[in-house]
Design a protein around this nucleic acid. Sequence first.
RNA 1: GGAGGUGUGCCCGAGUGGCUAAAGGGGGCGGGCUGUAAACCCGCUGGCUAUGCCUACGAUGGUUCGAAUCCAUCCGCCUCCA
Length: 415
Amino acid sequence: MGLDMTEPAASLPALAANAADALPAGGLAKQLAKAEEDGRPLRIKLGVDPTSSDIHLGHCVVLGKLREFQDAGHTAVLIIGDYTARVGDPSQRSKSRPMITGEEIDANAKTYVEQAARILDMDRTEVRFNGEWLGAMSMDDLFALVSRSTVARLLERDDFAKRYKANESITMLEMLYPLLQGYDSVAIDADVELGGTDQLYNVLMGRDLMPSYGKPAQTVLTMPILVGTDGTDKMSKSLGNYIGVLDAPEEMFGKTMSIPDAAMPEWFRLASGLPHAEREDVVARLASGELPPNEAKRLLGRSIAVRFHGDGSGTAAEAHFDTLFRAKEVPDDIPSISATQLPVNEDGRIFLPGMLVEHMGLASGNEARRMITQGSVKIDGEVLDASTLEMDPAQLTGVVLQVGKRRFLRIEAGA
RNA sequence: GGAGGUGUGCCCGAGUGGCUAAAGGGGGCGGGCUGUAAACCCGCUGGCUAUGCCUACGAUGGUUCGAAUCCAUCCGCCUCCA
């Protein structure tokens, strides 16, 4: 397995681009030079927790970086933290995490790898579960590991320190996390470890541990955390401010349009998937006022759609968006049901709240009543009278029902 | 082991016997304006074919005509002391 780096010297700036931290200073350059000298690819570690099964753009920042290393000829070692997931990474958590079950972990890991394949070159990816070595540890091994750090050292960690100060609980188990995570680097002989900036402490722990196990210390590279579509909080599934890699192109475009202007430069850099030079050019023109914000955001939306759905998907998604929100027209590809599927009560009439819950995804009858009362239900573009709770099937046949701005349902005549 | 504190709706947080589906804020949703950005304005924000009924204030049991509010036990979390 030889290196096929065409121009190793030139790959350094690109590989370090966007990184929040690259430690120690100059470490990456040395690693790259040494790899070339030895004629072997570097082993690039990325540890992931199989606690959530949906990969979103936030995860893609670091996955994308890993892919860049692969493209430069190096080996990706993707560690599924099946064992560490039992402990729970305390990063960014205000409370202790509940432990999750083995089946959940397995299922999450499987979907994670499937989705990661959209970013990574899986032929060049070594997927490992850390239960492989952590599960095999004896009590003696554990003693040896935990004796390498101290309580004071662990309490230096910002999130522990904050929680400790705020009188919140910190379990002994959680304090084990950085050590176990760091041990992964020992187990797989990592040369470089990637992570988000929230992982800095963890990845440095790996760097600290390796020499005491007689291995050269890894270089660490942390990537900035992408803000979500709200522009303030870290992108996460639980906050609902995310764009998933499996989202439809229209969703990707639409969600991108909703981000605050201030988040655009960051998104261009970390999420657009555009080449380094191009995205920097866009950011510069946006800052100078040469590129209007709306146009920039549209470009961003198209780029993201294209990144995951290929050429053409961007302009198609944009057209869909314009139909919906600019022209306020009904899009072509809306779901439809047959009038015969409508639920009918004893009087042969349709109870609207129930129907909206059943066919248009509203959370409850009360929510549906609220929508009707607030005038956000339209039939063929006409706002439904606020007091209407029942309708005859004939009135609903062959119409387009709309709730809010983006939920549509066509009711077809015929069987 | 001892002493004390605390637990409210998605989150924060008021509420110490009926007027409490529970103030206020945040978030979210809907509408207006717009570039589905921001800012701003208005409304809504437990469930139920519903002038009422059900569920809900850590858990269980009790006192009372009536409990988030009083009592008992238990559980979680925190602080100080050992």
